[in-house]
């Protein structure tokens, strides 16, 4: 059983970086990042361990709740200084809950167990819009900020790469599941998600380091 791949290594490095650099962070959203990365690593490990025994759709369906909850909350925290209130976050969580439960229990009730691919599509689109909106807000902001070392900017960039890049795979998720017959480790899906995950966690690790440096600089 192969535990360490490029993908899992990237996740593990990101988790360790979060643990080392963020545990003293003042922001709840950044500290929550440690917990989220722990969930990511645990989910991935559990999936590797159990995939030959039981289907892991349930596991990833459950993980989706953590993913949506964390990424949405994190994005909301970035928009908060620009005057966006909590109602946006709750409205989005409401929409997500309706789509998620709808797909899980009604629309695909016949093919149980199944992965909530449509919900993932909706979530990805929402996050891409969130990331693009963040860029827009930064562009119109009169205050100059050095983006090359901005933790928020690289966090959003990582998310944008992942959610935008996975659009095609998400849209054709069912098709790929049916026709992408090569062994999973050489399948198109696997290669694409591997690349996306490596980009995502590399940029997030960099953003964690930037955040740590920002905190150190602001203290000195």
């Amino acid at each position: 059983m192969k535990f360490i791949s490029l993908n899992t290594a990237a996740e593990l490095i990101c988790f360790l970086a979060a643990l080392i650099f963020l545990y003293r962070d003042k922001s709840a959203a950044w500290r929550l990042f440690i917990l989220y990365m722990l969930i990511v690593v645990s989910t991935e490990t559990t999936a590797i361990l159990t995939r030959r025994i039981i289907p892991n759709q349930h596991l990833y369906n459950a993980f989706l709740l953590a993913e949506c909850g964390f990424v949405s909350y994190f994005l909301y925290n970035m928009f908060r200084p620009f005057g966006y209130t909590k109602k946006w976050l709750f409205a989005w969580w409401g929409i997500f809950a309706v789509v998620y439960l709808g797909e899980l229990y009604y629309f695909r009730g016949g093919e149980y167990p199944h992965f909530v691919a449509f919900t993932v599509n909706i979530m990805s689109v929402a996050f891409v819009l969130g990331c693009l909106w963040f860029y827009y807000v930064k562009l119109v902001d009169e205050q100059y900020e050095p983006l090359m070392t901005s933790a928020q900017f690289w966090w959003v960039s990582g998310a944008l790469f992942f959610y935008f890049g996975s659009t095609a795979c998400n849209v054709f998720f069912d098709y790929l599941a049916e026709y992408d017959h090569a062994s999973y480790y050489s399948s198109t899906r696997y290669v694409i998600y591997n690349i996306l995950n490596i980009i995502l966690y590399s940029l997030w690790t960099y953003s964690i380091v930037c955040r740590y440096r920002q905190r150190k600089l602001s203290r000195s």
Partner: peptide
């Protein structure tokens, strides 16, 4: 699908580059 994914992967690179240039 692989090609589309590749294009979707390239697009953010340019977007980030534009944002950095503007900045």
């Amino acid at each position: 699908i692989a090609l589309t994914s590749f294009v979707f992967l390239i697009a953010p690179i340019f977007l980030i580059r534009y944002v950095l240039l503007y900045n």
